[in-house]
């Protein structure tokens, strides 16, 4: 049995007036009820996954890495399969985190419409946990959660303001998931994976909308100190996920080292080629970047990026 615990301090809020008070959120709740799907029945699980159709998620919009091209064809396919399992393992962990955070949102948000909608998202996230777990088991094994993702999810789980939970999960994490799923959908040719991505993306779109609607309403009503704290929290959340180095036992590690070693790839050669591509501004521009392209514009849209914080995003390359 593998588990960890974290202390959270959530102040549950009762509402005793049950009428709708935020109409777009009530409408979104109606949409959510209509768009429910069943992970066991609505994915074509009867179709077997051909590993050669999964696609290499390591270099979207770019030439495969030389260290990948140098592998025999069957090992290239094996690399793509394991790389996908690694990536999806982190989405799986992220979906579990989202399920717990949405459970908190049901308790902490101050409006009945906000609570009703958040309750639908709990079951959305449960479904996502179910589909990603089932699909990963076709590919490989479940890989550990990456430190940056874990740090973000724990920061949101322990945040004291409900607006921080909403910004961290609904606006940042959900936007990044939407952007990443769009990229993966363009790469893969596996029908099962495509269907999973289509249905989960449809749910993620509602999740982002919830954050945008609610935060556009709530942020202007916050007092200045809390608003400053929210702005700083948003920046920290983005940098935790985008830039936290991979640490294990106090030393920095490449998250794919285990995969390289198992497939006979020289980890140093692979890491050095990946870093060199990350340092090339042309290559960086060509790569889809869900932080810059999806999360940052939404943070701007809800007004959580201000003159006080905008430059910090530019400094770390997270501004659109």
């Amino acid at each position: 049995m593998s588990f960890e615990t974290i202390d959270t301090n959530v102040k549950a809020l009762w509402r005793f007036d049950y009428d709708s008070n935020i109409k777009p959120l009530r409408d979104l709740y109606e949409v959510a009820k209509k768009e429910q799907w069943n992970a066991a029945l609505d994915i074509p699980w009867h179709i077997e996954t051909d590993p050669s159709q999964i696609g290499d998620m390591s270099a979207p919009n770019a030439e495969p890495y030389d260290f990948v091209k140098a592998l025999p064809k069957e090992k290239q396919i094996e690399f793509a399969k394991r790389r996908s399992a690694h990536l999806l393992s982190n989405f799986l962990h992220g979906e579990q985190g989202a399920m717990m955070i949405c459970g908190q949102l049901v308790e902490v948000v101050p409006d009945m419409d906000g609570k009703l909608y958040a309750s639908t998202q709990v079951i959305d996230e449960a479904r996502h946990v179910e589909v990603f777990h089932r699909y990963i088991s076709r590919l490989d094994r479940i890989y550990p959660i990456m430190p940056g993702l874990k740090a973000l999810l724990n920061a949101v789980l322990t945040a004291d303001l409900w607006q921080m939970k909403c910004i961290g999960m609904q606006v940042i994490a959900e936007s990044i998931a939407m952007g990443s799923f769009k990229t993966m959908l363009a790469i893969t040719h596996d029908e099962v994976f495509k269907k999973i991505l289509q249905l989960t993306s449809q749910d993620e779109a509602r999740h982002v909308s919830y954050g945008l609607i609610y935060m556009k309403d709530a942020i202007p009503k916050m007092n200045e100190p809390d608003r400053d704290r929210l702005e700083d929290f948003a920046f920290t959340a983005m940098t935790l996920l985008a830039t936290t180095p991979q640490m294990e036992g106090g030393r920095s590690t490449d998250p794919f080292e285990q995969i390289y070693l198992e497939l006979g790839i020289d980890p140093q050669k692979a890491t050095s080629e990946i870093i060199s591509r990350m340092m090339d501004p042309e290559a960086v521009r060509a790569q889809p970047n869900p932080f810059r392209d999806y999360a940052y514009p939404q943070l701007e849209r809800v007004g959580v990026i201000t003159d006080r914080t905008r430059a910090k995003y530019r400094e770390v390359g997270l501004a659109a």
Binding site: P24, D27, L28, E30, V31, E35, K182, Q198, S201, Q202, A205, R206, V208, S209
Partner: peptide, 20 residues
């Protein structure tokens, strides 16, 4: 593609099947 607009104005707006 959240579907909020087609919920509000179903006579004019939709998310076509298979589209996002």
């Amino acid at each position: 593609g959240c579907g909020l607009c087609s919920e509000r104005a179903p006579e004019n707006l939709e998310i076509p099947a298979g589209f996002s």
